[in-house]
Amino acid sequence: MADDDLPLPIVESTDQEALTEAFGSPDAEPDPYTPRGTAFLWWQALQDPVHYRNALDNLSTNPSAWNGYRQAADLIADLSMLTGVEDNEEDPDIKYVRFIHYEGASSGQVFEDAEMRDFFVLTVVKPEESDWWLVWGLSDSYFPSRDEVRDL
């Protein structure tokens, strides 16, 4: 069995533990002032893109590009969001949040690094004119470059 065929090093945890890990406390509320908060709110709104269309539009850099958000919902609404936010080394106002398939009965926490080949990346950006982070795009198993995100 190859190393990449092994299960990810994840242990089940409570939802409270996962919220504490993601947002600093079990009572913390996600908000669009952080990359993780924006990713979480956008992902949750995908559970019902018709009902939460206004929230999705307000959390997106280009709402018309999502064509109603149905395809994004089909891709990641049922996935699990990793708590880590990854940096773009060239631009501090571009961040990445990964989503994976996780079959646990509750929340899970990763206990060591592992290579992942099958994941989705939500790219979030912080426009100069806004205090909010906004969703730029969704990609399958790769991190868009600064040039792609900034259309350079």
Rank of each mutant, 00 (worst) to 15 (best):
R150I: 02
A18T: 03
V97C: 07
F120P: 00
R146D: 12
E21N: 10
V97D: 01
T14A: 09
D78I: 11
K95Q: 12
N88I: 05
E129S: 14
W132P: 00
G137V: 10
E86G: 04
W133S: 03
A45I: 09
L152D: 10
P63K: 02
Q16W: 09
L152W: 11
R53Y: 09
E12F: 13
V110N: 04
P26Q: 07
T83E: 09
K126E: 07
V124S: 06
W42C: 04
R98H: 03
L6Q: 06
T83S: 10
D74H: 07
F120G: 01
M116N: 14
P127D: 12
T34S: 14
A65K: 10
T83R: 01
R146Y: 11
A65L: 09
E128W: 01
R36C: 00
S13M: 11
Q44P: 13
L122R: 04
S141M: 13
A18M: 13
F23I: 06
Y96W: 01
D48E: 09
V50R: 11
N58C: 10
D4I: 07
D118G: 03
R150G: 01
A105I: 12
K95C: 04
D31E: 14
A39Q: 02
E129P: 02
D151R: 15
E90R: 01
L82M: 12
L75I: 13
L122Q: 15
T20F: 13
H51M: 13
T123I: 05
Y102A: 01
D78T: 07
P63S: 06
R150Y: 05
V97N: 01
R150E: 15
A18D: 00
A55S: 15
N88P: 02
M81E: 00
E89Y: 05
L75E: 09
E21D: 10
G137R: 02
A28S: 14
L41H: 04
D27Y: 00
F111E: 12
